[in-house]
């Protein structure tokens, strides 16, 4: 392997880690807004716990990305120092929380995807990603259980909860496909086993979520369109306000010590 190939691969891993880190960071930020607003105190606790896990994933991945991309940026530099167009998260995670059912639908889509991805990454050629995958998969297994159990409870609860849960699924489903998109970056990393192309996980993901929805008596949505753009920094309009809020204090005090 030539030096330039090594350098290119390192930059690819940095870009890949940035995508996954941004997914976790933005979803964590959305979940933070639920705390004190959840339907029960148990859910305030569960959602804050999930948000904390995701924040941990983001910190690991962003720090790793900054270490590999040659800029030496810290996790904080990447989280607080970039602008809207520089974030690489999938659009799913920036969607407004909606009601509890929309949030649970989004959690089901993401946690099932994240669990499959991290489980696969645990065997990846890149040691940093493999270590992250092995650790994160354990937490994502709980997030998946939490979302699946709520999907079934709401699907089989009352007529209203069934209607809301189906509406939540219909709302988020057009955003699921982007998680599995292939592009040159992931194909290069997948080809030599450095990382995992999420497209490989799609069939398993579909089977798993279809199983949960069947248990819940809900219908797998068949959306007529699919969102895309997050991986190249083309976000929804909801993202600007999310990022403004996220970065506001740190940007108000330039050079601050936190």
């Amino acid at each position: 392997m030539t030096v330039s190939r090594t350098g290119e691969r390192t930059r690819d891993v940095a870009a890949y880690a940035l995508r996954l880190g941004d997914d976790a960071l933005v979803l964590s930020q959305r979940l933070c807004a639920w705390v004190t607003n959840a339907p029960t105190i148990e859910e305030d606790l569960a959602i804050s716990n999930i948000a904390l896990d995701l924040l941990g994933h983001a910190r690991t991945l962003l720090a790793y990305s900054g270490e590999l991309d040659g800029t030496g940026r810290s996790d904080d530099d990447l989280a607080y120092g970039r602008t809207e167009r520089q974030f690489r998260n999938a659009l799913l995670v920036e969607l407004d929380n909606g009601d509890f059912a929309v949030t649970i639908a989004r959690q089901l889509v993401y946690a099932q995807y994240g669990l499959l991805l991290c489980t696969a990454l645990a065997g990846a050629g890149d040691a940093g990603l493999a270590g992250f995958g092995a650790r994160a998969a354990k937490e994502l297994e709980y997030h998946r259980m939490h979302a699946a159990q709520w999907t079934v409870r709401l699907g089989r609860g009352t007529a209203e909860s069934h209607r809301r849960m189906q509406a939540g699924l219909d709302r988020v489903w057009p955003y699921a496909g982007e998680l599995f998109e292939a592009d040159e970056l992931v194909e290069r990393l997948d080809a030599d086993g450095t990382a995992v192309a999420p497209a490989r996980l799609r069939a398993d993901w579909e089977r798993e979520v279809a199983g949960v929805l069947a248990d819940a008596g809900l219908t797998v949505p068949a959306p007529s369109w699919h969102a895309t753009g997050g991986r190249s920094g083309l976000h929804t309009e909801a993202f600007g306000p999310l990022l403004a809020e996220f970065q506001s204090v740190r940007r108000q005090y330039p050079g601050g010590n936190w």
């Binding site: 948000a51 924040l55 910190r59 607080y80 996220f246 506001s248 740190r250």
Partner: peptide, 18 residues
Amino acid sequence: LTRAPSLHRKASLLAKVQ
């Protein structure tokens, strides 16, 4: 929580509120 000025502080505050 949504405005904590570093990721470390955000994690600490999440843990505290939890």
